[in-house]
Design a protein around this nucleic acid. Structure first.
Lengths: 147, 147
DNA sequence: TTCGCTGCAAACGGTTTGCACCGCG
DNA sequence: CGCGGTGCAAACCGTTTGCAGCGAA
């Protein structure tokens, strides 16, 4: 099943009484095109030609976060970056290697099911979740086989 | 099983060729005493009487992060905060309510097991993980029963 | 005695804010 | 036409850095 696209995003904004502006579409497209999460400075670089102002960019990210179109995640242990949420991007979690810094996207039903069971037990209704697993990827284990 | 305390922290520093300084002990104690994650400004307030300098505080947090005594997490969708990791604190994940903002700590074997199975499948060796589940807590569902 | 650690103060840069203008609905 | 959205520029403040002195080992 494909993820929702620009058309659905426009409808989503209308449904939430938010105006459909060129700036918001520009940001949405940049996020869709990107592989991973983007910081505001990242985004600024990618939408440079549109002349979009940085202050506006921050305000748009705040809006999209409230609407749960995106959510902020911590990058490199220090920078806030944003990534699209369902239904605008396929959900996944992250394996992050402490050695090479590479991020591996994962999606696994076992995890989703465990999570659902746990939340149900407590009567918590899930919007979305985010998980980071830190450790050593297979390649780096081979290079530093001890410990 | 209790979590490791100050004595173990001191030994940990020695094992890693790091000096045992009053400042580092002060920070460690503040983190232990705290319920949740603390930002650097938070910490600065709590260790005020010790006269610990802010720049030093940042350097200590960087060091503790590298040693994996703590790790940074995103608070309120924007601020970086630090929390102790195993074995210095009991591991747990978070349910975060979008309505009241309250955080519920959870620990559940089903999640840990699913995670281990998934990582094993990919040959990824886990140091630690962090999970945030965003949604509506039982209390807030009662107050806003629609949607 | 050595070198890691710390305090101080200045600089940096990501983020926020006030305000006037613009343009979507 | 009204009000949400935007650009601009200044301010803010969390964080980083250089350097000299201190103290843990």
């Amino acid at each position: 099943m494909a993820t929702a696209g620009e058309k659905e995003f426009i409808q989503f904004l209308r449904d939430h009484q938010m105006r459909v502006t060129p700036n918001r579409l520009t940001v949405f497209r940049a996020l869709q095109k990107s592989q991973g999460p983007l910081t505001v400075p990242d985004l600024a670089g990618r939408v440079e030609e549109s002349g979009l102002n940085t202050a506006t960019l921050y305000r748009i990210m705040e809006t999209l976060t409230e609407l749960q179109v995106v959510h902020p995640v911590l990058q490199d242990h220090q920078n806030v970056a944003y990534e699209l949420l369902e239904p605008f991007a396929r959900h996944h979690d992250h394996l992050i290697c402490r050695q090479c810094g590479r991020t591996i996207d994962i999606y696994d039903c076992r995890l989703e099911e465990a999570l659902k069971a746990i939340s149900d037990d407590r009567g918590f209704r899930i919007d979305f979740h985010q998980m980071e697993v830190h450790g050593l990827c297979p390649d780096c284990q081979r290079l530093t086989p001890h410990h």
